[in-house]
Computed example of a mutant assay.
Amino acid sequence: MSPFAFDISLEEFEAKVLLPAETVPVLVDFWAPWCEPCKVLKPLLEKLAEEYAGRFLLAKVNADENQELAQHFGVRSIPSVKVLFQGQLVDEFNGALPENQLRAFIDRVALPAGPATASPREQAAALAAEGQPEAALAILAEASRQAPNDEAIRLDAAELLIGLGRNDEAQQLLAAEYAQESARAAALRARLALAAGSADTAPLEAKLAANPDDHATRLELARAYAAQNRFREALEAALEVVRRDRFFDEGAGRKALLQLFEALAGEQYDDLVREYRRKLSAALN
């Protein structure tokens, strides 16, 4: 199945259309098997979805099987294409457009093209930095299909999935062997283990405020901060346990810091890890 074009039902609409549409335009194509113009438009849309490689997504809805969706969008004839983006219906058309008109329509609603010289990983990184992780994942999925042995592409996708809280999907990617990228894969596995903890910090912060010497709660809070990608706060909480009682629970504070150092291995967090390695050394001496 293409990462850029997929069939959906009513039950999948929120997960596969509404959520991705927060960051990338989604063209919703209402069609039916008996509709002759649909047989012209649908394959053309699918071809362009692949060509545009994540600048828009194509969600295909069988109007006969999903009449509630068709009624919700006021579909009176098919094919009918609705464009959703950032919670809004931003454009639409009915009927089968010729390819030149369809390209012009898509160019108007799709995300801007990245630099022609940018690699798929660079394009995905730029989209992620712009707050468009779903579009970035779509580009990485297609790049991985084209280069299935490129471990860096798969790990980029795993890192994005962890950031989105899609831990089961990240786990599937990280279950593979990574001979060339073993250190980064180990770091992401460690980060995934941290992300599996509770991310609700408010009750823990309140409990710790009532008893600042509750070292177990402070370590639990460090794990919760890590699950929210608040890594500096996680490191500081674990370090505070070392400062207050380095021997608590057989050195649990130091062990928590070492786990965080492993999870943050890589260029992005090098400065932060170096800073807290120095602070740990000072606390222990």
Rank of each mutant, 00 (worst) to 15 (best):
A193L: 09
A129H: 03
A196Q: 13
E205L: 13
L89T: 09
E262F: 06
Q180T: 11
P3F: 02
L194V: 06
L192E: 04
P120G: 03
E92T: 13
Y276L: 04
D271W: 11
L137S: 04
Q259H: 14
A193R: 09
R254C: 08
A5D: 02
P43W: 04
A227W: 05
C38D: 04
E122G: 01
A179S: 15
L239A: 11
E233S: 07
Q101K: 04
D270F: 15
D156G: 02
P212R: 06
Y178P: 11
R232H: 10
Q88A: 14
P212A: 08
E122R: 09
P3T: 04
E134I: 08
E233T: 05
F6G: 04
K39Q: 04
V28E: 01
I153E: 09
W34F: 07
Q146K: 14
Y269A: 08
D156C: 06
N94Q: 15
P212W: 08
E181A: 11
L258I: 14
A128L: 15
A234Y: 00
L173K: 00
E130H: 07
A32H: 05
Q123R: 15
L284M: 12
D213F: 13
E169H: 00
P3H: 05
N149R: 11
A282W: 10
A210D: 13
G163C: 03
F93Q: 01
V241K: 07
A187W: 00
R154S: 12
